[in-house]
Design a protein around this nucleic acid. Structure first.
Length: 428
DNA sequence: TCTGGGGTCCTAGGACCC
DNA sequence: TCTGGGGTCCTAGGACCC
């Protein structure tokens, strides 16, 4: 018989990732409700299953939950991205040892490509992946395997929901696909958000299966090409490939301030730091940017104070990844959009139009010595790499840090070097 | 008083050109 | 006052994801 190689896609998802990370080094939290708050301790961004059972919704502002948290002894943490990033890396490294190709989709999710696995029992193999990952990292995970990415997403939800699957669910026949899709709410499908789900329900489409029974042209008409892709994927035709690109097309660093800022000086300091962080991320992926954007705004939710929001787009004369240059443009931009008399809540820097480091178009009239600056940036990055973040920085980044965010419930950085821990202690 | 941060892709409409 | 048709590029905004 002719063997055709049909790849299968896997989606591995870390269960309640941030909450699980907090538990890895603090097992006394096992079985207890845990929530993790967003930057500035604003709202809930992760919940353990116990916290979900208590009815704590995702995205709920923390202040609304005070009572619930106290009466139920919920463990509350500020988000600790250093810790989560490190555990994420451990998970991804393990996955790479099992399959030839993975796509890191987010901090807690990866797609796996099972190409050339025709003779392998994917249930057993998947179970091994789940078991090894959980054992070696302490993070519980779920794995869905199916002929398309969208179906793998569906499968992973079943793997997580039903205990007897033991973390793995494989959709490899049409019968299983039909059964799964009939039990799957349309709004939970990857690619169908709040707006489309409302629209589809209006037309009587309540499950993923209902959706697949509509005509292709109807879907195209109501939801465009993205909807059509989802439709095809749910019917078993793969049209979303593994994403092999490693470089980002835009890089953004933005924060809400710990307290409202009114003066230009502290906002400039914040923006300089955001710009520096963008430039650093840019160099890490060996790219150059051609556009810098800066934005500032007051609290958009405030009802009883004047609101203001503005942004500016600044084309760079020559694509660059030089921190000093990106800071310079960002600060000039800020100066033009900043207006006196407002209480600012948030600012950010976005860089776009990103190109590979070389080859790039040299500007004949360029006066700065680019090689020299590149060398300086290289030295700065390696110093910061070995001695901890922000050891070396540009003067404009300042030391006041009035804009620093709140994170009062930060867990210790269990996985990082001693120097980093001392740094964090010193900053408190 | 308190409501995150960082991404991607697609489309409609305007400006401009011939 | 009338005023076509087609192409391209850019931008803002909307939808989605985690």
């Amino acid at each position: 018989m002719l063997q055709i190689s049909i790849p299968m896609y896997g989606l591995l998802d870390c269960n309640n990732f941030y909450a699980s990370c907090e538990r890895v080094f603090n097992p006394s939290l096992n079985g207890k409700p845990v929530v993790v708050l967003s930057n500035n301790d604003g709202c809930v961004i992760a919940r353990s299953s116990e916290a979900k059972t208590l009815g704590i919704p995702m995205g709920e502002p923390a202040y609304k939950l005070k009572e619930l948290i106290e009466t139920n002894k919920v463990a509350v943490f500020s988000s600790n991205y250093v810790l989560y990033g490190d555990l994420s890396h451990r998970v991804m490294t393990i996955l790479q040892s099992f399959v030839p190709e993975i796509e890191i989709y987010s901090i807690d999710e990866a797609f796996l490509l099972f190409d050339g696995f025709e003779k392998i029992n994917l249930h057993e193999f998947g179970a091994k992946i789940v078991q090894t990952t959980t054992q070696n990292t302490g993070i519980p995970v779920s794995l869905g395997i199916a002929p398309t990415k969208t179906l793998a997403k569906v499968a992973s939800k079943f793997a997580k929901k039903y205990k007897n699957y033991k973390g793995v669910c494989v959709i490899d026949t049409d019968e299983k696909r039909e059964k799964a899709l009939k039990l799957f709410d349309i709004g939970d499908v990857w690619g169908i958000g709040r707006q489309y789900s409302k629209k589809l329900q209006y037309y009587g489409v309540n499950t993923a299966w209902d959706f697949t029974q509509r005509s292709k042209s109807w879907v195209r008409h109501t939801m465009g090409v993205t909807g059509e892709r989802t439709w095809l994927e749910l019917r078993g035709t793969p049209c979303i490939e593994m994403d092999r690109s490693v470089t980002k097309k835009s890089i953004c660093t933005s924060r809400s301030f710990g307290e409202r800022l009114t003066e230009l000086a502290p906002i400039s300091e914040a923006v300089a730091n955001f710009a520096a962080s963008c430039a650093e991320k840019l160099r890490k992926q060996h790219s150059l940017a051609s556009i810098v954007m800066v934005f500032i705004h007051t609290n958009p939710f405030a009802t009883n104070e004047p609101k203001y929001a503005n942004q500016i787009v600044l084309p760079l004369p020559v694509p660059t990844s030089d921190t000093t240059e990106i800071i310079r443009f960002a600060l000039a931009g800020l100066k033009t959009i900043y207006k006196d008399g407002f209480r600012y809540k948030k600012a950010g820097v976005i860089i776009t139009e990103i190109l590979p480091e070389r080859p790039f178009q040299q500007d004949l009239f360029e006066v700065r010595n680019r090689d020299k600056f590149n060398k300086i940036m290289g030295v700065m990055d390696s110093l910061n790499e070995s001695y901890g973040k922000q050891k070396v920085k540009i003067a404009a980044q300042g030391f006041d840090r009035k804009w620093k965010l709140k994170n009062e419930k930060l867990s210790p950085c269990y996985t990082t070097k001693l120097s980093d821990i001392l740094e964090i202690k010193a900053a408190e």
